[in-house]
Design a protein around this nucleic acid. Structure first.
Length: 353
DNA sequence: AAGACGTGGTC
DNA sequence: TGACCAAGTCT
């Protein structure tokens, strides 16, 4: 038996809606939602009905863990509380708030989408998954998430969590999207979708799932057995950056606007092969960017030694008090924080509790 | 349509 | 310590 042979049966199952019996579906919805009510984490965006607030959270959560999002979310919402405010902002301001979260294209696209919403949609987000899908940065998952959570549109989301849950629970060879849609509780699509993701994130874990705590264990087909995809090989590199200070200012360098990685963002000036003597080495830290693991040497240069720097991008002296307003790369933030040059602002505003 | 895109937590 | 991995989207 192989996937090709069994594919037609899958389609038939999906078409006739017999992936699970009605009783099983009812059991699944009831148990999952009851579990969710008892175990849902108290997250800021779950306290809000504002579609914009939901949108921001969904973009930030793409490929990013909840814990990494919380601080940035509070700061972002305090700084850009409405679509209109976001649309009015300049891109570097948006990137500055996003700094450290990664996948900066998300911020650029969300900013562009906010301008579309402001200019062409009277400031209102589309209320359906199909409408949302047309905006930059909003794909299959995010459109379904916003539509179901903010507007009650009965569309099942399929993210990494849901995919894993469905792969474990479903009968063999049924389609993932179809199973998720069949299981979805159309009366509470937003809660149901979040419950599925919450289950995947906290119980139905990739490696060692906590099946004993699982509310739908009874009708799970695998109880945890789950294939893992092979990973890309990582690359190791060593690079150098210079810390140059002049009083309360730090020298920063802008990455090329057409760089594929962190275009136009600011970092400590790069050094090439001719490094300063080892006595100038402040420290070495490791930093991973996508599949490359960098060993980063940070050298101290005096302000009168900037001519020793190689040809680089645009450079600028920035007051340490203004660093929070600069779109720094994550690496630059990390280095400047470690040196206590940069202290990220305490997030304030209405979201703070 | 496979590869690119960031980062920090976890085990 | 280092590999794995996270509420995807775009090209």
């Amino acid at each position: 038996m192989n996937a090709w042979v069994s594919a037609p049966a899958t389609i038939q199952n999906v078409g006739s809606g017999e992936i699970f019996t009605p009783a099983q579906i009812k059991h699944f919805r009831h148990n999952l939602l009851a579990w969710y009510e008892a175990h849902a984490r108290d997250l800021p965006w779950r306290r809000m009905r504002d579609p914009y607030a939901i949108w921001v959270s969904e973009i930030m959560l793409q490929q990013t863990r909840v814990n990494a999002v919380l601080d940035h979310y509070a700061r972002f919402m305090a700084r850009f509380p409405t679509v209109q405010k976001l649309a009015e902002a300049e891109e570097p301001e948006v990137l500055a708030i996003w700094s450290g979260l990664g996948y900066y294209r998300r911020a650029r696209m969300m900013h562009r989408a906010a301008r579309v919403i402001s200019n062409e949609l009277k400031g209102h987000l589309p209320r359906t998954a199909a409408g949302l899908r047309r905006l930059p940065g909003i794909g299959a998952y995010t459109s379904a998430a916003i539509a179901s959570i903010a507007f009650g549109d009965p569309v099942a989301v399929v993210d990494g969590n849901v995919e894993r849950v469905v792969l474990r629970v479903r009968p063999r060879n049924s389609g993932i999207q179809a199973v998720a849609q069949v299981l979805l509780d159309p009366m509470r699509p937003g809660d149901f979708n979040q419950a599925m993701m919450e289950l995947g994130a906290t119980v139905c874990l990739p490696r060692n799932p906590l099946c004993l705590h699982c509310p739908v264990q009874k009708l799970c087909n695998t109880r945890g057995e789950h294939p893992v995809a092979p990973r890309k090989e990582s690359v190791r590199k060593r690079v150098g950056h210079a810390l140059v200070r002049r009083g309360e200012r730090v020298l920063l360098e802008q990455r090329a606007q057409d760089a594929s990685l962190m275009a136009g963002m600011w970092e400590l000036p790069q050094l090439d092969g001719t490094l300063p003597g080892p006595e100038r080495l402040l420290f070495t830290i490791s930093h991973s960017i996508t599949v490359t693991n960098y060993s980063v040497d940070i050298f101290r240069l005096r302000a009168d030694e900037v001519h020793l720097l190689p040809e680089g991008g645009r450079r600028k002296w920035i007051s340490v008090d203004d660093l929070a307003e600069i779109p720094l790369t994550g690496l630059a933030r990390k280095v400047l924080k470690r040196l206590q040059v940069f202290k990220p602002p305490v997030s304030g505003g209405p979201l703070q509790r």
